[in-house]
């Protein structure tokens, strides 16, 4: 599984980080930064929760 944030839509709600801090961080402006590369299986549930919680639907998941 891989996750990515579309910078065109991310406006820094920070909800991804709030709901899944182990997968999503925030940069200095509060925009989401996703964990790079393959998401370890232990974090997949968290990645899904984080991406679902984005109000902009800016996060996509590649299974």
């Amino acid at each position: 599984m891989k996750v990515s944030i579309d910078p065109k839509y991310c406006v820094g709600h920070g909800m991804c980080h709030l709901n899944a801090p182990d997968v999503f961080g925030l940069d200095d402006d509060g925009h989401g930064v996703a964990l790079e590369g393959e998401i370890p299986s232990a974090l997949r549930e968290s990645a899904r929760l984080g991406s679902e919680s984005c109000p902009q639907q800016a996060i996509s998941i590649e299974e």
Binding site: V11, G12, G14, M15, N19, G30, E52, P55
Partner: peptide, 20 residues
């Protein structure tokens, strides 16, 4: 409640800059 995709701070580019 979780996830909670509320738009209390708005949405799009003008989304609240004071939310933190």
């Amino acid at each position: 409640r979780r996830p909670n995709r509320h738009v209390a701070f708005g949405a799009g580019i003008h989304r609240c800059v004071g939310s933190n």
